[in-house]
Design a protein around this nucleic acid. Structure first.
Lengths: 162, 162
DNA sequence: CCATTTGACCCCAATTTTCCCCACAATCAT
DNA sequence: ATGATTGTGGGGAAAATTGGGGTCAAATGG
């Protein structure tokens, strides 16, 4: 089960959020979405611990679901305890479609909780990608100075003051 | 485990960076990139400890990701602690495509952090290759006199003063 | 039930950025 | 030397991002 033949999400980008709440998914990440699933859709969840969003394609959602089912079956067969309901909560997600320009509307609950305003910082993370409010990121109490630094660099390049 | 029949990166070269930020990947290294992945792309990260960049092909990225997923699964199955988010940070990378002449644009954050100006020193390192600012390399507080010496030699050959 | 509002989509257009292509210089191998 | 490959410079074409309409349908409230 080594080769899943999926494209990975790589790259970083600071994108503007317009007055309608739309953001363009950076071309690099969108390319991966399109490669992994023909549906022009992106699944959006809150990160379990960090104040950011986690996004992926429909194919990855299926993969996660399959794995969970396999774990549940194995646990049951071996009589181990397995809180399937809890595990399944981690798979809940919003679904959004993106248009020909690669834009979608960040669902209001997710946008609100991630504190996303005028700008959205995209972070490719292999099987998924994250979306941060740049302001939240640089202020966050996390051990990832490089990401914060990178965010500042991208902000400066677009003349955005955080 | 996957039998990955991969070519290795070998060789050294000092390349110029033009006004657009473009640099040609030396032919030896490019050959390996092409052999390992049909995508004309190179993934670029910062070295975890040294002031240089680490680059590799998309196939190696997939290999690293597969290994990480397997480790995470094993750890979970055996109830061992595993900081997946931290491990995953090491896999984050910028993606750049190179043209028919083998040139790509060094992403501005990476270029900035590696202190790369007019010249880029390429170092084959088996599964990956490194890109150094020659000035940073010879001044770096590292125990690799041979590499520094080699860099000076290449610089002298191109009449570059460091 | 009908009028009005809201908002989700879709299309078009301008600007910026990237990348593709061609020509030429330098280097290497024969 | 000379032809082939590799590296370098620059301009034009294509794509990405962003702003702003318009249209249709569901929801709201008279």
């Amino acid at each position: 089960m080594c080769v899943s033949n999926r494209d990975l999400f790589h790259g970083f980008s600071l994108q503007s959020v317009d007055d309608k709440g739309r953001v363009a998914i950076p071309a690099d990440l969108r390319e991966t979405l399109d490669a992994n699933s023909p549906a022009k859709q992106v699944l959006i969840t809150r990160h379990p611990t960090l104040p950011c969003l986690v996004c992926y394609d429909a194919g990855w959602a299926q993969e996660l679901n399959d794995r969970l089912n396999n774990l549940a079956r194995a646990a049951k067969a071996e009589g181990r305890p397995f809180d399937e309901a809890a595990e399944r909560r981690g798979l809940r997600a919003e679904k959004a479609t993106y248009d020909a320009n690669g834009r979608f509307v960040i669902p209001s609950y997710e946008r609100d909780r991630a504190g996303i305003g005028k700008w959205a910082f995209f972070v490719g993370d292999s099987d998924t990608f994250q979306i941060w409010s740049p302001e939240q990121l640089v202020a966050a109490d996390i051990d990832d100075d490089d990401l914060k630094d990178r965010c500042r660099h991208y902000a400066a390049a677009k003349k955005v003051t955080l």
